[in-house]
């Protein structure tokens, strides 16, 4: 019988701790597939965040660091400078990257560090129990914005991809989503491109994944994917925001 589907080799054969309907598992799988397809597992290094995906090292079978909250890009910098031949990625959530770690991500991008960043934006703090994130959208209720996020009280959601795309040091910046199969296929394409850019030594690449968090949002999985489509994407448009000079961005 022909095998048509299998677990990526770069993933440990273990169940994840993620909630049903969460997007992290999908992004982990895309990551592992990309690593397998490039055949680079033995020279890939991951830097995990603090947040729901803190245990990413339990799932991806490569050398890994577990970083402090927000500092993954700095750790990746230290590692990449020591081993320029390794392929270094960070995996960070919205609290980690867009709140406590803003300085680190901006400056890693601006230095043009030859690393790849996987940024998972689900508009909420999942691990600590549903508090407001820097990417929480206006009107969204969280445990620390119980009346709904108000621009007057809490400011606006931060659009990381657009912001980083303004930096000359960044080579590739894209925003994708993992809320339906079509989006997932496009997400993988972007992630593969990001790794390719690093492998070719072209510089800093980041893919922002819009992801559903049914538990944090207090919805069913199905409602959550709909919410991504109807609420998140209008606030965080998908597309490529920065591409290598020789290319045209796909919107």
């Amino acid at each position: 019988m022909k095998k048509v589907f299998e677990r990526p080799k770069s993933m440990f054969p273990v169940p994840t701790h993620y909630c049903p309907g969460c997007g992290h598992g999908i992004v982990h799988r895309l990551l592992a597939e990309v690593i397998d397809e490039f055949g680079i597992r033995e020279r890939v290094v991951g830097v995990g965040p603090v947040g729901c995906s803190v245990f990413i090292y339990n799932y991806i079978n490569c050398d890994m660091y577990e970083a402090a909250h927000g500092r993954a890009p700095a750790i990746a910098t230290g590692c990449k400078r020591m081993h320029p031949d390794l392929i270094v990625f960070t995996y960070q959530g919205d609290g980690d990257l867009a709140s406590i770690g803003t300085a680190e991500i901006i400056h890693a991008a601006n230095r043009g560090e030859n690393i790849t960043v996987l940024f998972l934006n689900n508009a909420i703090y999942g691990m600590t129990g549903g508090q407001m994130a820097p990417t929480t959208i206006l009107g969204q209720k969280t445990t620390t914005s119980p009346l709904g996020r108000s621009s007057k009280r809490e400011g606006y959601p931060i659009r990381i991809a657009e912001m980083l795309a303004t930096l000359e040091g960044a080579t590739y910046i894209a925003r994708v989503s993992v809320h339906n199969p079509k989006a997932i296929i496009a997400a993988k394409r972007a992630l593969k491109k990001a790794f390719k850019i690093q492998i070719e030594g072209l510089g800093f690449s980041l893919v922002e994944f819009l992801s559903q968090c049914p538990t944090g949002w207090g919805m069913s999985s199905r409602e959550a994917t709909k919410w991504v489509e109807e609420k998140m994407i209008p606030c965080f448009p998908l597309g490529e925001f920065k591409v290598p000079r020789s290319e045209k961005p796909v919107k």
Partner: peptide
């Protein structure tokens, strides 16, 4: 803060 984590990264990589 970034500096000490760059140290973390390089030290972790054996530097």
């Amino acid at each position: 803060i970034a500096a000490i984590y760059m140290v973390f990264g390089a030290a972790g990589a054996g530097a």
